[in-house]
């Protein structure tokens, strides 16, 4: 039997009286891409923030099982938690400006991740950064340029490179193509898909765009009012939605 990489049990988080997410249970297996969909305010971002350590949930359990080492994510010390987040997790923000240092060059941004896990050899950091700049289809002559000189799509690709360089075990993506125009979206999605296949990444991706989920996710969960109302293989959920809300969601996709 395969042990899940991430097991969540009865996770709840509320903001005063407003429910963020309620009694969420789910598992994520190695190499799997899990999509989380739902309308705005349904608790997608609250859930992903709890799982990635950005938010402290009120109740529930989050257990990571990486290389046969169990980590009870909500019951470890602050320093262990930050170290775990640094080495084993990665977070791609919707707005790449949130995940990058804009006053530091592209290479410095990518290299920071390496330096934070202990790399102290400039030559090695430089060559790995160059390799990853290439991998996300940015010209390597741009390595010393500041991110403010980059286009929106390039910024997002740079952020992806920064997150993947240390080969994290779980990658969280919060609307990674949210702020981009359609043609750039397609290119970034294409890149994410090829990286997922090539590197066998384990990803949790949040999106309100069903096309993104259909393209990338193996499994998906549908959220409404802070709870999971439907889950399963993405093809299955999208082709044969059981819940009224999911049916509405699927039927409201524009076919141009």
């Amino acid at each position: 039997m395969i042990i899940p990489l991430l097991k969540v049990t009865n996770l709840s988080k509320s903001y005063d009286n407003i429910v963020g997410c309620k009694n969420i249970s789910m598992s994520l297996y190695p190499g799997e891409v899990l999509g989380i969909v739902g309308e705005s305010g349904s608790g997608k971002t609250t859930l992903i923030n709890c799982l990635s350590g950005n938010l402290e949930p009120d109740r529930g359990k989050i257990i990571f099982n990486i290389n046969n080492k169990k980590t009870d994510f909500l019951n470890i010390s602050e320093s262990e938690k930050r170290k775990f987040i640094r080495t084993d997790l990665a977070f791609v923000h919707q707005n790449p400006r949130d995940g990058l240092r804009l006053n530091v060059s592209a290479g410095g941004n990518i290299g920071e991740k390496l330096m934070s896990v202990g790399y102290r050899h400039y030559g090695n950091i430089r060559s790995l950064a160059t390799k990853w700049i290439n991998k996300v289809e940015i010209d390597k002559s741009r390595i010393d340029d500041l991110p403010i000189t980059f286009s929106g799509g390039m910024l997002q690709r740079l952020q992806i490179a920064k997150n993947l360089i240390t080969s994290p075990n779980v990658i969280f993506m919060d609307e990674p193509t949210g702020g981009l125009d359609v043609s750039v979206q397609a290119r970034v999605l294409d890149l994410i898909r090829s990286l997922v296949n090539e590197l066998n990444l384990t990803v949790i991706i949040v999106s309100h765009d069903l096309a993104v989920i259909r393209l990338l996710a193996d499994k998906m969960i549908v959220m409404k009012n802070g709870t999971v109302i439907e889950s399963g293989l993405s093809d299955q959920v999208l082709e044969d939605p059981q819940q009224e809300y999911t049916q509405l969601l699927v039927s409201s996709v524009l076919h141009v």
Binding site: V104, G107, E112, M115, S116, V117
Partner: peptide, 18 residues
């Protein structure tokens, strides 16, 4: 307090690359 100093080398990295 957590000795998270990896990012400190970013400044030196920027110097060398420039």
């Amino acid at each position: 307090s957590l000795s998270e100093y990896g990012a400190m080398h970013v400044k030196l990295y920027e110097d060398i690359s420039k």
